[in-house]
Design a protein around this nucleic acid. Structure first.
Lengths: 208, 208
DNA sequence: CGATTGAATGATCTGTTTTTTATTCATTGA
DNA sequence: TCAATGAATAAAAAACAGATCATTCAATCG
C-alpha cells in the first residue's frame, strides 16, 4: 500500500467515524479534513467528492457482507437448502442489526443508493454470485432441479427483496420478519427441489 | 342512495378530477367546493378532512382492483396455477399502467399510504382474500399441496412485493418486470405443487 | 516544481417572513 | 330551526435573505 493509498484509507477512516456519529449531512468536508490534519482542498486530490467517499465506505461494507456470506459455501456439513437458509437469514439479521447498531451508516447507505443507482446494482450482483453458487451446489448434490442457477439466483433476490430493504421493514419486529422469510424460504426451496424451468418469456396466459 | 350519499359522491367525483389533473397538493378545498357549488366549510359536513376525501378515492380504486381480481375465480376453464398467474400479472400490469395513465392519482395513493398506514394494510388484506381462495382452489383441485391457504397467500404477497410497489420498479421497463415476475411465479408454483408446510417457527439452523 | 493550503466561488441549506390553505364556527338564509 | 355560508383562525407552505458548505484554484511552501 503506497502513500496515496494510505492517505485515502486515512480519509475513509476519518469520514466513517464522522458519518457513523453525526450522520452524512451533518458531517462537513472541513470536519473530515481537520481529522486528517489536512486542508479541505486536499481531500479532492484523493476523492472526486463527498459522495465518492461515502460510496467507498458503503462498498467496503457491502464487500465485507458478501465475504461473510461466502463463508456459508465452506461449511461442508450443510445441505444446499440449509445454506440457502443461512444466506437469507444472515442477510436479514445483518441488515436488521445494522439498523440498530449504526443507523446513521444505514442512512448514509440509503443516500448512496438514491444518488448512485449503479452502486446498488453492484451490491445485488455481488450477493447474487454467492447465491448462484449455493444453487449450483444444490444442483450438483441433486437437491435442486434447476437448469439456470444464475437466473434462479436473480429470482430468489426478487422474491426476498422485502427482507433486504430497511425502509420496507423498519416498522416490523425481527421475529415477525423471520417468520415471513421462513415461509417464503419454504416455498422457494420446495420449488427448487421440485424443479424450475430456466428463463423463458412470460406466458401471455391472460389473453385468451 | 340518499341526499347525503349523493353529495358525498359529488364531492368525491369533483376531488378526483382535480387530484388526477393537478395533483393532491395543488388542489385546494376551495377548488373542490367551487366545483360542487358549495362553500369550503360545507365540505366538512360530509368529510372529516382533505386526507379523508383522498383516502376514500384510493379505497374505491383498491376495491375495484380487487373486484377485477375476483373475476379470475369465475373462469372455470383455468387451473389454479393459471389463475395465480392471472392474478399476479393483472396486479403488475394494472399498477404499471396506472403509473402511466394517472401518475398524479398514484402519487395521491402514495401520500395516503404514508399518512394512513392502516389503509395500506386493508388493501393488502383485500387482495390476500382473493389470493387465498385461488390457493384453496388449487388444494381442492389437487394441484397444490398446502395446509394453510391463508398463510401461503401472505407468503406469496411477501415474495411478490416488488411488483406491487410503484416506487420499487418505476425505473424498470414492463417487459423486464414481467420476465422477473414470471421467474418468481414459476418457483412459487413449483413449490406449491411440491407441497409447502404450514406456518412454523423459523428454524434456527444457523446456530449449530 | 509538485504538494498543499485556504480563500473564493457557486450551490445548497436554514431560519424568518409572508402567503396560502385546511379547518372552524358565528352568522345568515331557506 | 337546521343547512349552509364565508370570514376568522390556526396550520402549513412558499418565498426570501443570509449562512453554510462542497468544490475549485491562485498562491505558497517544502
Amino acid at each position: 500500500m503506497n502513500a496515496t493509498d494510505m492517505t485515502r484509507q486515512k480519509i475513509i477512516d476519518a469520514a466513517k467515524r464522522r458519518f457513523a456519529h453525526y450522520g452524512y449531512g451533518k458531517t462537513t468536508m472541513a470536519d473530515v479534513a481537520e481529522d486528517c490534519d489536512m486542508s479541505p482542498g486536499n481531500l479532492y486530490r484523493y476523492f472526486a467528492g463527498k459522495l465518492d467517499i461515502a460510496e467507498e465506505i458503503a462498498r467496503a461494507a457491502s464487500i465485507r457482507t458478501v465475504e461473510e456470506l461466502s463463508e456459508i459455501l465452506l461449511d461442508t456439513g450443510r445441505s444446499a437448502a440449509e445454506r440457502l437458509h443461512d444466506f437469507l437469514f444472515h442477510d436479514l439479521r445483518e441488515t436488521f442489526h445494522a439498523l440498530e447498531k449504526d443507523p446513521k451508516l444505514v442512512e448514509m447507505a440509503q443516500i448512496i443508493t438514491t444518488e448512485r443507482p449503479h452502486f446498488h446494482d453492484e451490491g445485488l450482483e455481488r450477493e447474487r454470485e454467492v447465491l448462484s453458487r449455493i444453487v449450483e451446489y444444490g444442483v450438483l448434490s441433486g437437491e435442486f432441479r434447476v437448469s439456470n442457477a444464475e437466473y434462479v439466483a436473480e429470482m430468489i433476490q426478487a422474491a426476498t427483496l422485502k427482507f433486504s430493504y430497511p425502509q420496507l421493514f423498519s416498522s416490523l419486529a425481527l421475529d415477525r420478519l423471520e417468520r415471513e422469510l421462513e415461509g417464503v424460504y419454504q416455498i422457494i426451496t420446495a420449488g427448487l427441489r421440485a424443479g424450475v424451468a430456466g428463463e423463458s418469456a412470460p406466458q401471455n396466459l391472460v389473453e385468451a
